[in-house]
Computed example of a mutant assay.
Amino acid sequence: MPAETTIRTVMSPGRYVQGPGALTKVGEYLAAVGENPVLVADDVVWGFVGHDVEASLRSAGLPVHRDVFSGLATVGTIDRLVQVVADTGADVLVGLGGGSTIDAVKSAGHLAGIRWASVPTVASTDAPTSALAVVYTDEGAFLEYRFFPRNPDLVLIDSQVVANAPVKLLAAGVGDALATWLEARATAKSGSATMAGGLPTQAGTALARLSWDILWENALPALDAVRDHLVTPAVEKVIEANTLLSGLGFESGGLAAAHAIHNGLTAAPQAHGLAHGQKVNIGSLAQLVLEGAPTSEIRDFVEFTTRVGLPNTLTEIGLGVDDVDTLTAVAQAATVPSETIHSMPFAVRPADVVSALRSIEGFATRVRAEAGLPAPVKYVAGH
């Protein structure tokens, strides 16, 4: 819906650092942010980055205190981290890992009144750079967005660590980032407010488009390189597109239907095991259908995202065209008054979302067959 303001604004993290071996410098960059950091990471992440992080902090004269993260960014987890800050006297919280860890850290850092930093070990979402967090219920359903007055003070991402992670995580980040331009152009057309709290800036919209262009040019060779754990220029470009450009683009360019439909899909238990970007990709395709986008554009999107390894049919996310009750619940959750689907340049009803979701099955399946691409099969959770 149109914004009730003429103010335009853009938001960004205080510093963005990216490159192979960046983790060895995390202590140096954190020392400019705080003197008593608490590192938040799950056991898996700490197992492969803990040694380098600990050595870097000690080299910078910083203490090493790690809190174990598990699960999702829930209200309970966030409140527990606030208590950890109080107990340790921390002046900066550092999220190491994926989007949920980082969102929990941002939320807790804000509530505790201290600074926070993002050290993502994957490029699977644009959460690390933003001034908002997605909070979930204990059952894994979307609960709410939380907004903060500032972005992380530091975002540091080691591209070799990203290249060492499973390739499916980078592919999921491509799914999340592809939505950025689709949603930003819809927001610009409708004149709706962005997550930054004003109208879209030229910078935000342009960065959203830049993210899209980089991904179409570099995603496939980058994914091939990461399968062999290699860092190439294409990999560096995709990491930046997935993390920084998409983060700035969605926040200062605007969200619309794609992410609202993602949030709706969290109401479907069948989709709980899927990565954020996998569900977002279903939302992007449904948004193109809702817009009445040119058939050639939708066809190209199906072909490209299939090659990337992203779902673009209901079958792949464990649903079907006959699951009308579930799809209706998804559509109702996606169209609640607070959702970003109302930034589309036209009204969207739950019935419209149901029709869009049901329609992608047959079209995407046919496009894939005509292009000689694999037929849809149900994704195994998280794959």
Rank of each mutant, 00 (worst) to 15 (best):
V38Q: 02
A141P: 10
L143R: 14
I282T: 08
I78N: 03
L220E: 02
H110E: 09
L357C: 06
S118A: 15
R307L: 01
A333T: 12
E251M: 06
L255I: 13
D323G: 01
P63T: 13
F48N: 11
T194Y: 07
A329Y: 03
E316T: 03
D228P: 05
E217K: 09
L143Q: 13
W212T: 03
A196K: 06
F148Q: 05
I78Y: 02
E297Q: 09
R307G: 11
I7N: 09
A31F: 07
S192Q: 11
L23Q: 10
Q287R: 06
L310M: 07
T101P: 13
P269T: 09
F363M: 02
L154E: 10
T205F: 14
L245W: 01
T137R: 03
N312F: 01
L223S: 09
S130A: 15
G382D: 08
E217V: 08
L248G: 08
V238L: 00
A260V: 12
A203M: 15
G309V: 02
D176I: 01
E144S: 14
L245R: 08
K25H: 14
A381S: 12
L182N: 07
R299A: 10
H383G: 06
K378L: 12
L111I: 10
E251C: 13
V33Y: 04
V122H: 04
D79T: 14
K106D: 07
Y145T: 11
Q270C: 10
A293G: 09
L62G: 14
Y29N: 15
F250R: 01
P152Q: 12
I360R: 01
P311M: 00
R358N: 04
G249H: 08
A375L: 07
T9I: 09
A381E: 12
V10Q: 04
L220F: 01
W46M: 10
P200F: 07
P63M: 05
A90H: 02
W216I: 11
V324M: 00
L290N: 07
E139C: 03
V174M: 00
A208K: 07
H259D: 10
R58N: 11
L170N: 02
V308Q: 01
A186H: 13
P13T: 12
